[in-house]
């Protein structure tokens, strides 16, 4: 399974659209795209997971690394569009308490 990564970069806000599975195989690509954004100071980095239905622990590690980087650079990391399975993962790991996680607002089709 692959992961498609699309970046929409704005001045104050960048959105990273992910499509696929974030796992041990795709995590290095995500790291390459996400970390440089997280290291820029005073920025809001939004990761859109609307089209992601599986994240494994290596994938989760990338988000933790990004969180640490945004804390250092005075930026903000927002995860949005999580479905029920991904949301459960963020809840079990307690990351929902330290990360800004916005559930998928779309109406169920």
């Amino acid at each position: 399974m692959n992961l498609k990564i699309d970046l929409q970069e704005g001045k104050k806000e960048s959105v990273l659209y992910l499509d696929g599975e974030v796992d041990v195989y795709t995590a290095p690509n995500l790291k390459e795209s996400l970390y440089p954004l997280a290291e820029e100071s005073g920025k809001k980095v939004i990761v859109d997971l609307k089209n992601v239905n599986y994240i494994d622990s290596t994938g989760l590690g990338i988000f933790i690394g990004a969180l640490k980087a945004t804390d250092k650079s005075n930026s903000k990391l927002v995860i949005r569009g999580v479905d029920a399975r991904v949301k459960r993962l963020f809840e079990i790991t307690g990351l929902n308490e330290v990360m800004d996680i916005v559930s998928d607002q779309r109406e169920e089709v």
Binding site: I64, L67, K68, T93, G94, L95, E97, V98
Partner: peptide, 9 residues
Amino acid sequence: TKGLVLGVS
């Protein structure tokens, strides 16, 4: 339970 994974903070 609640509780963050080890190693984040």
